[in-house]
Design a protein around this nucleic acid. Structure first.
Length: 853
RNA sequence: GCCCCUGUGGCGGAAUUGGUAGACGCGCGCGACUCAAAAUCGCGUUCCUUCGGGAGUGCAGGUUCGAUUCCUGCCAGGGGCACCA
């Protein structure tokens, strides 16, 4: 008997699907559509296990929905702009474009060995001018709609590399590449007005029912809507007021100071004539934006000498500080401090000896004795020491305080968001050029749409630090579209999150002249099922949601939300290994020694570490292409889906892959051995099947029913278990007559059809072996016969006082009396009842009989 | 610090959502085949047991005829946000 030749058969079917163009689809309003999308990869050059898991899950969904009759769009593309290409250019002198396209070719080949049901005719790479020219046009529309603008804002500046760094590229206040101390610089930056949609983006989260609750929560927190008040504090001796934001206007009577952000305009003004303040600001700057570094930073401030008048008590004056913990980006860049009810304010007050006046009394505290120690009181309570607010609970006091502020004209109730506008300028070469020119006469002028795309120059020099676009000899020299005079191109390029904020829409009409063919996007959008890692729970998903709304606003698409369903997969981990001298060892540098002990290739002992996320630094990575090479794509896919629920982290183990591979071989053997005995494909059902045949039919139909439900709910590990069960049943089945053999064929075919989305090559081959001429990929998903999935008899548990004593077989839906009688006549029940009389008998139909004594 | 999630055999995990805890897989043990090994097949596999049973889903309580499931309080692990006024 022949062994299953994985390689030959897998590539045979991959070619067959491609030749038949099985997965190339067209919009067809007559048919129900289903758009499955996995987050597209960055073309690093090699696929990794995360891709393998992501695309396996997506492919199961795509093939399953396809089998259910939907017109399935399942495209693939490349998130092709980004820093690694420039690093490669600097390190190895290879041009970013060349590096990127070569990587794309390599990764496409690798992905194709997975046997994915992808419409490759729709492939796009975001670094291609045919892609990004549309992005530039969108930007011009956003600009016109007021959704894009330019403003001065603070950035992390690496003085050695002459470049702006993202927050995650600043490590301990130093540039990740140069190691230079990062400075805060103010630069003009292009921004997207995501805050224009703050409320919409927040409220619409409620309707994203097929998103993980975790992601919805993270987005809500990120947007961070908070209700509060803007309050004006007149500055003594000046003709202006300090505007602060507070969520706690009810604590105004507890205010003991006001504080400005180091970046506040008033701070800057004061600093001009105050060297001491300048020194303090310098200190603040050194803290940088590096989060870990400021962790233990003390609350510090500088007394400006100015005094603010309390809005409710003009006689009361509060000192005005500049404080290192006040953010310019949030609220108004200024606060009033109420030490009694805010921890940061309390820390600050203790340091500078400021009064601590409690104004909220905890429910069971005594007003005459209540004091604040080292901890601010932030809980519920009643206002006191607060004049007209006294006696009110926190919420009523807030409302009343706002009412009064508004009446006095010294403030108003407002809503504040944590969400900030999205800065999209990057001082980099390998990104989408921002299509504007700077003219000495006309200022910033958009490039006219007919002049798009603004393409990147190819002859660039990466030998020096800084933006190659900036120092290119000719590229930025151009003429002003308005006045025709000499002008300079914008040398900033877009953040790469911009490309990924609309690629799902481009996939609907990837070759269209216009950016988005309206008929296509109206048919395909929104994405029905989006699949990817949780690491994109906030930024990418929020940007894409914003961008879709902006596109809707500008008339490109008809939907506001891009992703109707979202699934976030877990990470893949592997055991870690270390040699005696503490060096990490890769899994293939380790083997079994005596017993359970591990040794390295020279036989020296190895310590086994915990399972950790695969990473190059810990050397615990496994290359998916090697797995596919050794076992085939089906085995790799099957293992990915077995055992662990897809949203949880899973551990990659050699034993697990072996187990999956064993199943591939077992199924192959089982079916090839038996097919000759089975009736021909398509033989009609024999009349009068025996008990064994009926039992097998029931098992098969029940398996179809539960696998269908499991796949619908992304419970692939359970679906796999059900298919193992059916395989076991089938293996134990001994056909004795024609009827048995007919049932055996039916069950076998159902099994093969259910396995198809997960192991498409094996399924296709077995389908052929079972005598079918047409491809399984075109066969509909099986429908269970519901008359077979309901058992005639059920096993009912019998308990005495809640403890299991026996099980009884009863006809389905048997009457309570019958169940009760059968239960009580069980010897085990009698034995455990002993002398006692049953006081009560609880009967749950088809489930349990509980005798209470 | 705040918010969220997760704790079930040696391991990954099931449990019809309040009704027989441990499906299925891995691992392990025993047996068959073999000169032998691998592969394969069969049986067993939560723990204790005086073989009647008893205990058991992180820990301690509670609700219930009945709790892995619901409630309260702890403990442990993981994640998110982080001077957000």
């Amino acid at each position: 008997m022949s062994r299953y030749n994985v390689k030959e058969i897998e590539s045979k079917w991959q070619r067959a699907w491609e030749t038949a163009r099985c997965f190339e689809v067209e919009a067809d309003p007559q048919r129900s559509k289903y758009y499955v999308l996995e987050m597209f990869p960055y073309p690093s050059g090699r696929i990794h296990m995360g891709h393998l898991r992501n695309y396996t899950i997506g492919d199961v969904v795509a093939r399953y929905k396809r089998a259910q009759g939907h017109n399935v769009l399942h495209p693939m593309g490349w998130d092709a702009f980004g820093l690694p290409a420039e690093n490669a250019a600097m390190d190895r002198g290879v041009h970013p474009a060349e590096w990127t396209y070569a990587n794309i070719d390599a990764m496409r080949d690798q992905l194709k060995t997975m046997g994915l049901s992808i419409d490759w005719s729709r492939e796009v790479a975001t670094c291609h001018p045919e892609y990004y020219k549309h992005e530039q046009a969108m930007f011009l529309d956003f600009l016109e709609a007021g959704l894009a603008y330019r403003k001065e804002s603070w950035v992390n500046w690496d003085p050695v590399d002459q470049t702006v760094l993202a927050n995650e590229q600043v490590i301990d206040g130093k540039g990740w590449r140069s190691g230079a101390t990062v400075e805060q610089r103010k630069l003009p930056q292009w921004m997207f007005r995501i805050t224009a949609f703050s409320d919409e983006l927040l409220d619409a989260i409620d309707d994203l029912e097929r998103w993980p609750e975790k992601v919805r929560l993270m987005q809500r927190n990120w947007i961070g809507r908070s209700q509060g008040a803007r309050v004006f504090f007149p500055i003594a001796g000046r003709d202006e007021s300090l505007e602060v934001f507070s969520t706690r206007p009810d604590t105004l009577y507890g205010a003991s100071f006001c504080a400005l952000s180091p970046h506040h305009p008033l701070t800057e003004e004061l600093a001009e004539s105050d060297p001491e303040l300048r020194a303090f600001l310098k200190e603040c700057e050194q803290l940088g934006t590096s989060e870990e570094a400021i962790e233990r930073a003390e609350k510090r401030g500088y007394d400006t000498g100015l005094r603010c008048r309390h809005p409710f008590e003009p006689g009361k004056e509060l000192p005005l500080y500049v404080a290192n913990f006040v953010l310019m980006e949030y609220g108004t860049g200024a606060i009033f401090g109420c030490p009694a009810h805010d921890q940061r304010d309390l820390d600050f007050a203790r340091r500078y000896d400021l009064p601590v006046i409690p104004v909220v009394l905890p429910p069971d505290a005594d007003a005459s004795t209540f004091e604040i120690g080292d901890e601010a009181y932030v809980g519920e309570g009643t206002a006191f020491n607060s004049r007209f607010l006294d006696g009110l609970d926190v919420d009523s006091a807030k409302a009343k305080a706002i009412e009064r502020l508004e009446a006095d004209g010294s403030g108003q109730g407002t809503v504040q968001y944590r969400l900030r506008d999205w800065g999209v300028s990057r001082q980099r070469y390998w990104g989408c050029p921002i299509p504007v020119v700077h003219c000495g006469e006309c200022g910033t002028v958009p490039v006219p749409k007919q002049d798009l795309p603004v393409t990147l120059p190819e002859d660039v020099d990466f030998s020096a630090p800084g933006n190659p676009l900036e120092r290119h000899p000719t590229w930025k020299r151009t003429s002003c579209p308005k006045c025709g005079g000499a002008a300079e191109r914008e040398t900033d390029t877009f953040d790469t999150f911009v490309e990924s904020a609309w690629y799902f829409a481009r996939f609907c009409s990837p070759r269209a002249e216009e950016a988005l063919d309206r008929m296509s996007v109206d048919y395909w959008l929104p994405v029905d099922q989006y699949i990817g890692g949780v690491e994109h729970a906030v930024l990418h998903l929020l940007y894409a949601r914003f961008f879709t709304r902006a596109l809707q606003h500008c008339g490109y698409v008809g939907v506001a939300e891009p992703f109707a369903g979202l699934f976030t997969q877990g990470m893949i981990g592997h055991e870690t290994y270390r040699s005696q001298d503490g060096k990490w060892l890769a899994p293939n540098e380790v083997r079994r020694g005596d017993g359970d002990d591990l040794v390295d290739l020279d036989g020296r002992p190895v310590t086994r570490g915990r399972v950790e996320k695969m990473s190059k630094s810990k050397k615990n990575t496994i290359d998916p292409t090697e797995i596919i090479e050794a076992y085939g794509a089906d085995t790799a896919r099957w293992f990915m889906l077995s055992d662990s629920p897809p949203d949880r982290d899973m551990e990659w183990t050699e034993a697990g892959v072996e187990g999956a591979h064993r199943f591939v071989q077992r199924l192959w053997r089982l079916i090839t051995e038996r097919v000759a005995e089975m009736p021909a494909a398509g033989t009609p059902a024999t009349q009068g099947l025996g008990k064994d045949a009926m039992d097998l039919r029931r098992a098969a139909h029940k398996a179809v029913q539960s696998v269908t439900g499991d796949v619908d709910q992304f419970r692939f590990n359970r679906a796999v278990a059900r298919m193992y069960e059916l395989t076991n049943t089938l293996a134990a089945f001994k056909a004795k007559d024609e009827g048995d053999r007919w049932a055996e064929r039916e069950a076998t075919e159902y099994l093969v059809r259910m396995i198809a989305p997960m192991m498409p090559h094996l399924a296709e081959e077995l389908w052929r072996i079972l005598g079918h001429e047409t491809m399984l990929v075109d066969k509909a998903w099986p429908q269970p016969d519901t008359t077979l999935t309901v058992e005639e008899t059920v096993t009912v548990a019998v308990q005495v006082n809640g403890k299991l004593r026996a099980t009884i077989e009863l006809p389905r839906d048997a009457a309570e009396e019958q169940a009760q009688q059968a239960a009580l006549s069980e010897p085990a029940v009698q034995r455990s009842l002993g002398e006692k009389e049953p006081r009560k008998v609880i009967v749950v139909k088809n489930r349990v009989v509980n005798v209470v004594a």
